[in-house]
Simulated assay, not measured.
Amino acid sequence: MVKVSICINSELTFKEDFQKFKKELLDETSKNGKITLQENTPKDTGAGAKAYKIKKSDNQHIISNDTEYLPWVNDGTGIYGPRRQRITPKTAKFLHFHWRGREWYLKSVRGQRPQRFVEVSMIEIEKSVPQAVMIASRHLR
């Protein structure tokens, strides 16, 4: 007959191990998430990709980016955005801007197609969680 016994010396040890595991899992997942978002963020000047920050608390890590234009890049503008209409000037007769080395005067523009880099990043982050769990589980041994 084989006898198997499990001895837990102290509840405190388990709690400490679990806290280390949770901290490591949050750290690893948020770090991977930030890197994935930075890699997938469309780059013109690179300002949007460089602006990701991680805010940490005991139970959650929040990856944020305060770059004003990123929601428009992700979700689209004009006929491709939530309003589904061309972009027109509010007070002037023409929109005036420089683009691709030229100066433009236009009555309206279609807008920008959505690039959906956040959604693509979320799928990649979800796929990386099992690896993060394995890395964090080093503290449970």
Rank of each mutant, 00 (worst) to 15 (best):
I79C: 05
K93I: 03
H61M: 03
R110P: 07
L140A: 06
R102M: 13
E11W: 03
K15F: 07
T36D: 02
L26I: 14
P114M: 07
G111T: 09
H98K: 15
V109Y: 03
R100V: 02
K93G: 15
N40D: 08
V2H: 05
I8L: 13
Q85I: 13
Q60I: 11
N59P: 00
S121M: 03
I123F: 08
K15D: 09
L25E: 05
K34Q: 11
V120M: 06
R83F: 08
K56C: 01
D58H: 06
K90E: 11
K3E: 12
W72C: 00
V118S: 00
T13P: 00
K93T: 09
N32G: 04
T41S: 04
H139A: 13
R110H: 12
K50H: 07
D75L: 05
D66C: 00
V133R: 04
Q115Y: 07
L37N: 00
I54T: 04
R100H: 08
T88M: 10
D44R: 10
I125P: 06
Q131L: 13
D66I: 02
K34S: 01
E103A: 10
K15Q: 12
N9E: 13
N65L: 04
A51S: 15
I125A: 08
T45I: 04
V129N: 06
R83Q: 12
T13G: 04
G81I: 07
T29V: 14
T45F: 08
K3H: 06
S64Y: 07
P114Y: 04
Q38W: 00
R102Y: 09
E11K: 09
R102F: 12
E24D: 14
K22T: 12
M122A: 10
P82H: 08
N9C: 01
I63L: 03
N65D: 02
I123H: 10
T29K: 07
K22S: 15
P89A: 10
L37M: 07
Q60K: 15
K22A: 14
I87W: 08
T88Q: 09
S57C: 03
C7R: 09
W99P: 00
Q85V: 12
L25N: 08
L70E: 01
H139F: 14
R138Y: 05
S64P: 00
T77C: 05
T29Y: 03
K34Y: 01
G78M: 06
P82G: 05
A47S: 13
D17K: 15
H96M: 12
E124Q: 15
Q19Y: 10
Q19T: 14
P42A: 10
K15R: 13
N65C: 06
G46S: 05
I87F: 08
T77K: 02
S64A: 09
R102W: 07
E126K: 15
K43I: 13
P82Q: 11
R113Q: 11
K56Q: 13
K34R: 12
I35A: 07
Q112W: 04
I62K: 14
T29C: 09
E124K: 15
R102E: 14
M1P: 00
I35M: 02
R141K: 14
N65Q: 05
Q112R: 10
